[in-house]
Design a protein around this nucleic acid. Sequence first.
DNA 1: CAATGATCATAC
DNA 2: GTATGATCATTG
Length: 223
Amino acid sequence: MSHPPLSESELLTAAQALSGLTLAQLAHDNNIQVPETLLRNKGWIGNLLEIALGAHAGSKPMQDFPELGIELKTIPIDSLGKPLETTFVCVTPLTSISGLQWHQSNIANKLSKVLWVPILSEKKFTVGERLIGTPFLWQPSSYQAHLLQQDWEEIMELIAMGEIDSITGKTGQVLQLRPKAANSKALTDAIGRDGQPVKTLPRGFYLKIPFTHDILKQEFGYN
DNA sequence: CAATGATCATAC
DNA sequence: GTATGATCATTG
């Protein structure tokens, strides 16, 4: 598919039609070469699915399918359906954040509706051998939304108070703040302990594995 | 061996 | 550098 889907059902149907395909098959269908490893192609799977589903290509801070209000996320899983990695959501704003509310944040918008595409990515598989699982649409339950908002507010409060360096990957129940940069020497503006401008490592919001695991269990059940 | 911290490619 | 797509790899 080279055009954007016109409706939610069209998108879901197109995505589910990919279920069972290997990444090599999908890559071939889209005239894309399969890398031997993801070491230098970390976003390859996500990009492949974007192309296959006609997602809005671009580097703007918005959903993949803005007209449908849907964000596309691939998620690597093992044979038991457990996520193998955390899920990156978006870059975290570190300045001009006073008064920013959860409901107007980029992360809340992106997580308001997600098309999850599980990829069976066990280590014994080459990239091309990995299998596309069953895609499904998800919207956070009131409880999940509450957990996300709580973590977001805790983290953003610390950032606003100039305590970003006290935040680690352990902060938060379902959401975490971690580096999101080219390397550990990258610098961006943030708020210092006395409210003064300081330089720090760019950060991003990630969904912790137990949280995304729960989403998958909720969809597919245990076992 | 899970989880946190570090890193890779690309467009602009 | 920022924003897109994430996974790598060292640490505990």
